[in-house]
């Protein structure tokens, strides 16, 4: 293979002993990952990577951010992404790149010229290794934020319990972001279902401090302003004690120990309203 590379020794060695190096590299990474990825798959991945690095080197370049390594970078980012999704650690991911250094060391570091080029190549690999870590972290963050979003969506259902009665079973802690979502959903459901009663069930809320109480109160007040009666149910004995100890005032907001009590009360009122209508008050 003819090359105008500034690194003839390195490129020649890498080209000549491609298969041997690749096998060793795959072996080393495979040991590191302890068989959680098949060697064949690993060999294919690393083979692509190896060839793309070689192409980059052929283009006489050691700049990992340069255009000749664009392909390598995208391969690495893809690799980190899949590793992050499969639950490998960042170290394991970065070592996939770094272990190429160990593989090359015996063949290159022996003579002076080779050693110099080996060092430069090692720097390139360091950069690429860092890139994998960065991509890994980014992928993880994406996963976390998408899960947080899903959690927000999942944990705030508003259900229609009866004609004119909707329920909000809250599970988990209430922060301002969740309160916002709950409030939006509750108020919209009130409008959509033409409901006059709302029951917020806090059985699944582990603790109620002043902040959480504040959020609850806001939701109740908003529902009231829309013209619905709002009840808080599912207050456990522990929570009741905390509420009193903290001096939290729920004012004239009706509260119940259990959802069934709150539902019974709401149904009674709904039935009464219906009876009034039937008797021709309107």
């Amino acid at each position: 293979m003819t090359t105008d590379s500034k690194m003839p020794v390195l490129v020649e060695t890498l080209t000549a002993q491609r298969d041997a190096f690749l096998a060793q590299w795959t072996q080393a990474v495979g040991e590191d990952l302890q068989g959680r990825l098949s060697l064949a798959e690993l060999g294919r991945e690393l083979g692509e990577l190896y060839d793309s690095i070689l192409r980059g080197l052929n283009a006489a370049d050691f700049d990992s951010r340069g255009e000749h390594f664009a392909e390598t970078r995208s391969l690495l980012i893809e690799l980190s992404r899949s590793r992050a999704r499969q639950g490998f650690t960042p170290t394991e991911t970065a070592r996939s790149v770094f272990s190429l250094k160990e593989v090359l060391e015996p063949s290159l570091a022996a003579d002076g010229k080779g050693a110099q080029q080996y060092l430069q190549f090692a720097r390139l690999l360091d950069d690429l290794g860092l890139l994998t870590t960065e991509a890994y972290v980014r992928t993880r963050e994406e996963i976390i934020s998408s899960q947080a979003e899903q959690l927000l969506e999942l944990s705030t259902p508003v259900v229609k319990l009866w004609d004119g009665v909707v329920g909000v079973p809250l599970v988990g802690t209430l922060d301002s972001a969740r309160t916002q979502v709950v409030m939006e959903k509750l108020l919209q459901t009130l409008v959509d279902t033409d409901s006059t009663h709302a029951i917020i069930d806090i059985t699944g809320v582990p603790t109620v401090d002043t902040q959480v109480a504040q959020h609850l109160l806001k939701t109740v007040v908003a529902a009231r302003m829309m013209g619905a009666q709002c009840t808080i149910s599912g207050i456990r004995p522990q929570i009741a004690q905390t509420i009193v100890a903290l001096g939290i005032e729920f004012g004239d907001i009706p509260t119940n120990a259990s959802l069934s009590d709150a539902l019974r009360q709401a149904l009674k009122e709904v039935a009464q309203d219906a009876a009034d209508d039937a008797r021709g008050l309107l």
Binding site: Q180, M183, E184, L187, Q188, L190, V191, K218, V221, A222, A223, M225, M226, G227
Partner: peptide, 12 residues
Amino acid sequence: VGMRPAVAMTLV
């Protein structure tokens, strides 16, 4: 009557 959800949230 007829307060919109967004309005109720703003007022709160």
